[in-house]
Design a protein around this nucleic acid. Sequence first.
DNA 1: TACCTAGCTTAGGAATCGCTTAAGTAGTTG
DNA 2: CAACTACTTAAGCGATTCCTAAGCTAGGTA
Lengths: 225, 225
Amino acid sequence: MRILIIEDEHKIARALKKALEQENYAVDVSFDGDDGYAMATTEPYDLAIIDRMLPGEYDGIGIIKAMRKAKIHTPVIMLTAKGTIADRTTGLDAGADDYLVKPFALEELLARIRALLRRPIEVQQVILTAGDLSLNTVTFEVKRADKPITLTSKEFALLEFLLRNQGRPSNKDTIISHVWDYNADVLPNTVEVYMKYLRQKIDDPFDGPHLLQTARGFGYKIESN
Amino acid sequence: MRILIIEDEHKIARALKKALEQENYAVDVSFDGDDGYAMATTEPYDLAIIDRMLPGEYDGIGIIKAMRKAKIHTPVIMLTAKGTIADRTTGLDAGADDYLVKPFALEELLARIRALLRRPIEVQQVILTAGDLSLNTVTFEVKRADKPITLTSKEFALLEFLLRNQGRPSNKDTIISHVWDYNADVLPNTVEVYMKYLRQKIDDPFDGPHLLQTARGFGYKIESN
DNA sequence: TACCTAGCTTAGGAATCGCTTAAGTAGTTG
DNA sequence: CAACTACTTAAGCGATTCCTAAGCTAGGTA
């Protein structure tokens, strides 16, 4: 899951990035409105956290409006120092899906992120499964046929993405843009290499059907049956 | 837009109902958890506003959990008197999409309702069919008479185009400009070749009528009957 | 019937795709 | 500072896919 932060207070931005990365999200940060606008409209994010007051031509509201106009429906959490009702409602009406008044508890932001990410793709479960394979997004445990499997964090992120898109093939570019963050531009080949790693861990040692499948020309998918 | 309110404080419930009806929503009210649960799971609502503390076997959290378990994804706004973070997050994690702490401003509730109702589940044609042929644009699966068919990506793109223009013939130039990208200039003959490939996969092996038809001088079409 | 043209068919070379191995880099740990 | 781990790239291979060329068939017309 890939998240964009647009926040001009570097301290807050960096703290957020760190916290979210610990939750295994791929995080990009932008420190001003113009740059943030460009990123929000060109890169595919699963969620954006945007400060209301920003330097540059675009403030938070402007970015959201521009995004919605461009038919980008990425859920947005707006951060705001102002607490008056009028301010809140203009944020929501502009197209934000939620807002938080600063200062806020990190706990709460994380819960709201989970709430928003839960919506578009089915009900977001803590434990994702496919056949006898299971992945726990909270404890980061992965098992197949009740045997624990050790994955690196990239492998884990990749497997989580595939499980969340179960049954539908994702091509390499899509996978890269959701599993890796902005400054990391990796070659499609990297995905292929990771697929091999994953297969060596979740498929090859087991008797059952191979869960990780290649749909030539369309991408990779995990099939439950 | 139809909204369900589950709230045991009659005064608040009635005030809400009145306010929402003025906004032109159709509103149902339930005053206790058990009754509310029954309504939430049997009637189709576009949104539910549920109090956290309720008399009866089901409290607010219980209702939401039961709804989600029953695969009802109606957006839910939770009302709560408790303002501690722990309480808030359990609500969101249980499957609520938003919450409001009482007392709240009506303005704000209305803005949040608008925010939640705004994101319509995109109803775009995912599965295209013609006769007993079906093509799933998300999973890239193609079937005829329930038998799976494997297509290459070009074949798939071509078939998808024909299905989207069902019944009306498309000539080779039109097909080329829609199925191939702009810089690729291919000969009309290439289309003919691909038509053969498609026929070999979707028509020849099957008993039924040939779906892929040539309209000499006008192009190719897929006919459903 | 002869002719013309649109579409059909086949085969093969070119390009691309995915798999695999090996090796390099950066960061961490003992 | 050596050893290890996680991540990424490079390069070669085999298989599939894409596209073209060339000859063929069939429908329409004079």
